[in-house]
Amino acid sequence: MEMPIDFVIVTVLLMNLMMLSSSRIRTCIQIAAVQGILVGFMPVIIDIHSILPGIIIISFFSIILKGMIFPGLLFRALREANIRKEVEPLGGYPLSLLMGVLMFALSFWLTSRLEYAQPLISYLAAPVSFATFFTGALIIVSRMKAITQVIGYLVLENGIFLFGAVFLGAQSFLVELAILLDIFVAVFVMGIAIFHISREFDHIDTHKLSELKDLITKK
């Protein structure tokens, strides 16, 4: 167990809770960005003694993408959509926070059931990456706006990347670049969709997007 790794991982966890309790969309985007940067540094921190050029490139791209480009895209969408800046969670903030903590407990329980073949770099890595994944899912489900759902998607991806960085080390870096490219395009397309939604509906509240339903759910 090494100190800097655990420090970063705990910070990632705390950011999840911050995200669940903050009321402003602007803050949420910033937290997701900082979390993304921290996760982006992970591959370098883990292999600090033998850094390969491939790892540095991957780290560099993911930090640029998650720390600068994604928040840029989201801030732009926020400006152009001209929406109220509050998050509006279903069930209020205390419940969200409580769920966040419960999810962390659940992640601990889930990961304690898996056996590891090799010695671990950090015992916190698996539960925290799961908790981040679940937090992202919670944000997608419980927040009302299209833009907060995209933030949730980013948090969820942060969780997956944390897991990948800690457990896989350096895979083929072309493949990782392709994955990053995909996520970039996904967020880009979602940004365009948000712009269209705000233009068509005058709001981006996804719970009001309910025209498409089946008979059974309608009555």
Binding site: A146, M190, A193, H196, I197, E200, F201, E211
Partner: peptide, 12 residues
């Protein structure tokens, strides 16, 4: 509007 709603659900 309807196709936009469908697209958003599909994407997300």
């Amino acid at each position: 509007k309807r196709s936009l709603e469908a697209t958003w659900k599909y994407l997300l």
